[in-house]
C-alpha cells in the first residue's frame, strides 16, 4: 500500500473497476462426506424428518400446495444427504401446463425440485404464496417462481433458485441431473 501512485496504476485500476470490489468466498468446506455431497443422479428423495426414510413418489406431493421439504438419499447404502443444510430441497407439484418448457423438462409428473436455500443470504425459503404459486423467503422476502426455473420475481435476491431435475423410476422420484447451478448464497468465488 505504500509508495507513489502513478498514472498507469490508476488506469489499470480503472480498467479493473467493477470486478474486484468483493472478497472471494472464503474457504469452501471439503464435502467428501457422502451425507454432505450434493444430490447425485440416481438419488431417491425422502421427506425431511422422516426417520423411516421412505422414498417419495409423485403422488406423495400434494398438487399446488405448500412445498414438501426433502433430502436426497443414496439408493445403494441409504445414506441420507442431510450433512449440509445446503442440501435441503423443496418439492412442489404443479399443473404441467403451467410450467415453462425448460421447467417442464426438469419436472417429473409435475413435481419440480429446488434448493430450499435462498440465493440472497442463505435463509430458508419457507413461505408459499398460494395465490401466485410463488416461493418466498421469510427473512428478506425474496420471491421466486417455481413454474419458471426459479426465476426471481422480487428481490433482494439477484440469482434464480438452482433447480434439481427429476425423473420417475418405478413410481419414485429420482434425481435426473445435478443442480442446475451453484447452491448457496452470496457471490461466487472470483
Amino acid at each position: 500500500m505504500r509508495g507513489r501512485f502513478e498514472r498507469r496504476t490508476f488506469l489499470k485500476a480503472g480498467i479493473g473497476f467493477g470486478v474486484g470490489l468483493r472478497l472471494a468466498d472464503p474457504s469452501i468446506a471439503a464435502q467428501e462426506d457422502p451425507a454432505s455431497i450434493r444430490p447425485t443422479e440416481g438419488d431417491l428423495l425422502v421427506r425431511l424428518g422422516d426417520s423411516s426414510a421412505t422414498p417419495l413418489g409423485p403422488d406423495d406431493i400434494p398438487l399446488s400446495a405448500r412445498p414438501t421439504m426433502a433430502w436426497a438419499m443414496d439408493p445403494a447404502d441409504k445414506t441420507v444427504r442431510s450433512g449440509s443444510r445446503l442440501n435441503q430441497l423443496l418439492l412442489v407439484r404443479l399443473d404441467p401446463v403451467t410450467l415453462t418448457p425448460e421447467t417442464l423438462s426438469r419436472a417429473a409428473e409435475g413435481v419440480v425440485a429446488y434448493t430450499a436455500i435462498c440465493t440472497h443470504e442463505g435463509c430458508d425459503i419457507d413461505d408459499w404464496l398460494a395465490d401466485k404459486q410463488h416461493l418466498s423467503c421469510a427473512c428478506h422476502f425474496s420471491t421466486f417462481d417455481p413454474k419458471d426455473s426459479g426465476r426471481v420475481v422480487e428481490g433482494p435476491a439477484l440469482r434464480m433458485l438452482p433447480a434439481l431435475p427429476l425423473k420417475v423410476v418405478d413410481a419414485k422420484l429420482v434425481v435426473a441431473k445435478p443442480f442446475t447451478s451453484r447452491v448457496g448464497f452470496g457471490e461466487p468465488p472470483l
Binding site: M1, K12, A13, G20, L23
Partner: peptide, 16 residues
C-alpha cells in the same frame, strides 16, 4: 479516488 481504486485492487482480499 486514487486511494479508493488502489486499495480496491492493490491487495488480495479473500484470504487470511
Amino acid at each position: 479516488i486514487v486511494a479508493f481504486l488502489l486499495l480496491a485492487f492493490g491487495s488480495e482480499p479473500g484470504r487470511t
